Structure formats: C-alpha cells, structure tokens
Simulated scan of single mutants.
Amino acid sequence: MRYEILGPLRVVDERGSSCVKAEKLAVVLAVLLIRSEKVVTAEHLMTEIWGEELPQRATAGIHVYISRLRKFLHRPGKSSPIVTRPGGYLLHTVSDEFDVELFQQLVTEGRKSARDGQHVEACVCFEQALGLWRGPVLGELRPGPIVEGFVKWISEMRIECTELLVDSQLELGRYEEPIGRLSPLIAEYPLREKFHWQLMLALHRCDRRDEALRTYESARSVLDRELGLEPGPKLRELHQAVLLSG
C-alpha cells in the first residue's frame, strides 16, 4: 500500500487509487500520516477538525472517524495500520510506501551526490523527488495547525530541492534547462534571491546578456520595493561579471 499526500490525499494499492471524500475523515488520516509512527492525541485531532469550538460529542466523533478509517485501510490478511495507544492513535507506515518519506530520501541522496561532485546522479535524485508532486500538498484540504505547519515545511523543502537541482544542472553546463523552470518560480517567490541568481547565471552562460541584466534589474526593483534592500553580494558580483563581459 502507498500513501500519497504530495497532491490530493489518496491511497494506492494493487486495486488502484482511493480517495477519502469526507473532509473530516481526510483530516484525521492526513494528521496520522504527517505524524506517522507517533501517537496523535484525540485532543489534537479534535482541534485539527473543529478548531477551538468543539461540538458536544467531539470525542465520540473521533472514535467514529477512526473506526471508519480502519475499515477504509483494511486489507485482507493484514492487521490494521491504525492502532490505539494510551492517549491517542498511531498509524504504522513501516511496511508501506509514503511519498513524503520517499521525497525526503531522494533529496538526501541527491545532496550527498552533489557534495561528492556526482551531479548527474544528483540531478536524477532531485528530478525524481520533484516528480512525486502531483499538485498542492493535500489538495484543497482545509488546514488546521498541524496540517498548516507541515504544508509550510514540506513546501520549503520542495523549493530547496529545486534550487539544488538547478545548482547541479549549472555545474554540468546544462544552462538551457533551468531557464524555463526558474521564470515561473521567480514570479511565485520574487524575494527568493537564489532563483534570480540562478536565472541570471543561466542566461549569461547562454550568451543572453541583455536578459541576464534585465533579470538583475528586476530582482533589484522587487527587493527595494518589498524589503527596502539592495541585492546581496553574490548577485551583485554576478551582475558586475555580466557587465564586464560586454
């Protein structure tokens, strides 16, 4: 069985993929996955579903959702992956695949390859990691504090993975490849100076000097407008190098 949350929540097995359509049920499964192999208290599940204003039968509601999830995840001949523990519930994922864990593993392997100068292998790992994403984390699921914190963390990790991929592509002299990827990322994260630097370098190495200079001016403008800051030394040094190349 495979759990996937790097996109709309779904469970995949030999019979195909299944989605949890009931939102509260999906929230419970999402939290158990985010905290997999750790006990999640009933109180945390209640807060995630209902916030601070709990209904009168909130505890009974959690029991019902756990029971329904056990039925949903039941596979013939196997024990339920959801177990009751003192104070809460725990979801076992050791014997199953979980796309978040695979993503983290691939990023770790990619980092090691990049540190060792094996950038071809690093690119493969980073591209496979990014290929696991099917859309926004957990789709349109309404976030509570646990889900919201996780989404911010894993989304930041995705950005870092993209930066690492582009770094390895640049090390390999594959300057054309990152350009199409970086432009929409800069539009989405205009204050991420590293993306501006990477795009500027890629354009410069592709003999697109004017576009590289416009990239710098765009970065300088947005940093000044939004933060009241000048570009950092690395971006300024690259700008100077591009100017001198003319």
Rank of each mutant, 00 (worst) to 15 (best):
Y3A: 09
Q198N: 06
V40E: 04
L9D: 02
E188L: 11
A22Q: 07
L130G: 03
E226N: 03
L9R: 09
E121L: 13
I154F: 01
E14D: 13
K38H: 15
A30Y: 03
R35W: 04
E211C: 00
C161R: 08
I154W: 07
E160L: 07
K71S: 14
H204N: 11
S168N: 11
A60M: 07
R174N: 06
K234H: 12
A129Q: 05
E97N: 10
E226K: 13
G51R: 09
G131E: 02
C19H: 13
S18P: 00
W197M: 03
V20E: 12
G7Q: 10
L185P: 03
T215E: 13
L223W: 04
D99L: 04
Y3L: 10
R134K: 14
I62Y: 08
P184W: 01
V120E: 15
V94S: 08
L203T: 03
R220G: 04
V64T: 08
P178Q: 05
V64M: 10
L182Y: 09
S79N: 11
A42G: 15
L73A: 10
C19L: 07
R85T: 15
E171N: 10
L238T: 07
E148M: 06
G144E: 13
G7F: 01
K152F: 08
L199V: 02
P143E: 12
Q128P: 00
L132E: 06
R208E: 11
H119Q: 05
G180H: 06
